[in-house]
Amino acid sequence: MSDPLLSVRNLSVSYPGRTGITHALKEASFDLGRERLGIVGESGSGKSTMGRAILGLIPRPGIVSAERMDFMGSSLIGNSDRDWQRLRGRRISMIMQDPKYSLNPVKRIGDQIAETCRLHLGSSRKDAEKRALSMLEAVQIRNPDTVFTLYPHQLSGGMGQRVMIAMMLVAEPDLLIADEPTSALDVTVQNEVLRILDRLVRERGMGLLFISHNLTVVSSFCDRVLIMYGGRILEQCAARDLADAKHPYTRALIAAAPSLDHPKSELATLVRDPEWLK
């Protein structure tokens, strides 16, 4: 990890509301190289907010502040709309949870993939279509010519998510954020999609920010793990050391997961300590 792809210091996101300011993310700091970094935490812990802040997609009236947010040597803070548009899809992209909602229902699959090329690579229509087709092959879709002309409602969830991966990787970004990419899928296709994602990320030497609430998947799939709770990063550790995590929250999360080898009649529940947020 010589020069980090992404370097974040004290990134905060807050939403002013009638009853005061809500801090969705508070003073998050981490570095990401060309590796897989897992982010785990329960719902509302700020995982997705972090992904969206890195893409500059925090909706109004959210406020993003950071001491430093450098991507490939240049700062993301103070980017203009145009700067962001050049970056998104081309350098950083994101796969979202459920292809049922994240694909445009009235546009053909092929056109949705080709759109990314047309936006960034200045490719001709024909060229973009060719790239889209080869990308469909790369995500192991058996008959890309047919799938190219289909609409999202004609695809299964697993296929939809592979299309999403194709769409987000076609312009060869350096960083991919995967926001719970398999949580909406059947367990049987989850592994398949993960394997494809794994291979493409490895082949292209990309950085991956893998957001999930599935501890098992994260610990087997990622190099390092960030544990988040209440908008903060509580702990960072190597994925293989997750079992020896020190923070009581992490230990409690691990304890709460059922294990086939040691069946228990009652699973542990989390006891939250306000001290963690101090």
Binding site: L87, N104, E115
Partner: peptide, 11 residues
């Protein structure tokens, strides 16, 4: 969500 997708693609 597909509107976010379009933004992520760089629209």
């Amino acid at each position: 969500e597909y509107v976010t997708t379009a933004r992520v693609k760089g629209r």
